[in-house]
Design a protein around this nucleic acid. Structure first.
Lengths: 355, 355
DNA sequence: CTGTTAGCGCCTTCAT
DNA sequence: ATGAAGGCGCTAACAG
């Protein structure tokens, strides 16, 4: 490796340089490089060879300016350090890269102010479109509307609002919960409790409704006392609610939890109190975090296909970008997948594994 | 919200528009907008007011083209869906956004071919600099050298190679391991085993050396038989090695594991085999994944400050970008933090918690 | 204080 | 089959 001074950055070759070197015009060079049919094969070869040898690489800042597009897509999530969103991002990047796009990632920390800030920064730095899962605080989303006003497609995913007329990619939380509870019923559990999330959060209330519906449809015993609402959706809350319920007059024999984390708390209590899982009590989580697979007993859960969601949202937005059309108002609903592990009675740890 | 047709994207206002509307020249408008001292206050006010009213927003594609910079920084990690890297990204984005930069994220999937592809895409789409944690397969890194050849700073972090002369931000794995093992010794464990990673991976061998050194310095019994090398660094390997060691003639009374995941496998075996943790056997992980806090017994571990690392790397690169200088060849070493939990004998779950 | 001019690198009519 | 010329929107000398 030659040792040139760090500062000495050689000026990049331009079309003009090639043109003068070869004694032809800039436009011929430009056309030759993209194998325009008008150009003589000989010229094409000469130009391409020269470009190759001298490592010509187009100035994309100029290209993009000229065409006013960036080949970037923006992606905003509430929380980056989160298994589900990390998966979404991963899927989005995979598709975007495959099509020659880069992904600019930001997070809102579930705060509206931050979301406005980062979205503004993206609109300015010019992305060609935006994928967003809105913050808990976002209501109207005028800052998001700005993208569409500028002709840039927006896709909402996971956490969405109907106040913004964009395509939406969501997970069928209701059905996921329904299937999960149905599974518990089939396993023979008779008294199924639910540790739910906050009612104002759509995903949470959907799951709760799925739970209720599944009990109803199977003629199962149910009771409002068996539904406990988390506030911060923590491991500790799972522990506390499990304790409260198991010590009550009418203790459940299974728990369907809003989240794997909460389920872990439930398990911690049950083990400590001497219950056998899944023999005495079954436990079902939701989200299928990485940890569900490695804790013991391993945790049955509902996989939300974050990676798939990221892929799908990106495919949709790329199509809109290419068609230069904002005319898509569909809602795409992804089915969840039940992942059955030890905590609901499978013999082996990996009866079903996620895809 | 007014209901305009989705396609009708109004052409954005330009400096020229403002100039003709106000009957002054483009450059005056340009200068007025940035409050150039030469311009009369009155003119400034007129221009600014007009701009405000008509929602002028500069065309950043043009600005960036003109100044040939993008206000983007690239970030490539081996694996996005990984607690540590997610934290790094999060920290990087926080700092970048604060300084008006966006972050373009990609992953190499620990494959050289992918890394070359995504780095090329970033160089093309023009980022102003690159943060990278190289893939396992990367040796020379000529594709990364290209950034520096183009005058763009590169910072390596976590997984690095000395073949590339860039600033580096790493974690002091040796010291982290040393402190962890020292802690086990102080807790009274006498026979400490190590489930290590692959020797070719620098971080892994550093940790192993820290382990060896700590035993040495404290005159502890040691044995090559107590060191087991993982290949895929899985939970199952932890389980298997724990079984193998505990069933041997000279079983250890503590495990220092290359990773929290491996530690979980160790714990699973120990519990199943009837050992008490931490009473009979202590277990120490490494990386302080989220799960370390929520499993039971909660797992003592070594925090690598991913968030801090992302922040630091970004601060360094921003400074280089601003100074327009590649003249930085330092290695910044972050200290780890020992997080003591139940698995090594603390009474409460959270004697020390991470920052 | 303000306007004129030139140009960043590329693409694209239009002409030859 | 090739060239000349204009312009994307903005900035920054250089002139007045």
């Amino acid at each position: 490796m030659q040792n040139r001074p760090a500062e000495m950055e050689k000026r990049k070759l331009t079309l003009k340089d090639i043109a003068t070197s070869l004694g032809i015009s800039i436009s011929t060079v430009s056309r030759a490089l993209k194998e325009h049919p008008d150009i003589a094969q000989e010229t094409i070869d000469r130009v391409k060879e020269y470009a190759q040898e001298h490592h010509y690489v187009p100035n994309y800042l100029a290209v993009n300016f000229r065409k006013s597009r960036t080949f970037n897509i923006g992606l905003i999530v509430p929380e980056l350090v989160h298994h589900f969103f990390a998966n979404v991002i991963s899927g989005a990047i995979a598709v975007a890269n495959k099509h020659g796009y880069n992904v600019m990632v930001s997070q809102s920390n579930d705060r509206l102010a931050d979301e406005v800030m980062v979205s503004r920064a993206m609109l300015n730095s010019s992305v060609d479109g935006l994928l967003i899962s809105i913050s808990n605080e976002t209501i109207e989303g005028l800052h998001i509307q700005e993208f569409m006003d500028a002709g840039k497609p927006v896709i909402q995913f996971d956490k969405i609002t109907d106040l913004l007329d964009t395509p939406k990619v969501i997970v069928d939380d209701f059905d996921g919960a329904y299937q999960a509870v149905k599974h518990l019923i089939h396993r023979g559990y008779k008294k199924i409790a639910h540790v739910k999330g906050r009612d104002l959060v759509k995903n949470a209330s959907e799951r709760c409704q799925g739970y209720v519906k599944a009990l109803e449809n199977h003629g199962m015993e149910s009771s409002p006392d068996w539904i406990k609402g988390c506030t911060d959706i923590s491991e500790q809350e799972g522990f506390d609610f499990a304790k409260e319920l198991m010590e009550s007059n009418n203790p459940p024999d299974a728990f369907f939890c809003i989240t794997d984390l909460v389920a872990l708390g439930v398990i911690r209590y049950l083990k400590q109190a001497g219950y056998q899982i899944p023999k005495n009590v079954g436990v079902m989580g939701f989200s299928n975090w990485h940890l569900a697979e490695v804790v013991s007993p391993s945790l049955s859960s509902v996989d939300q296909h974050g990676y798939e969601m990221g892929k799908m949202a990106t495919e949709i937005i790329l199509e809109m970008i290419q068609k230069h059309s904002l005319d898509n108002h569909e809602t795409y609903e992804l089915k969840t997948k039940l992942v059955i592990r030890e905590s609901t009675g499978s013999v082996q740890s990996n009866l079903v594994t996620q895809g």
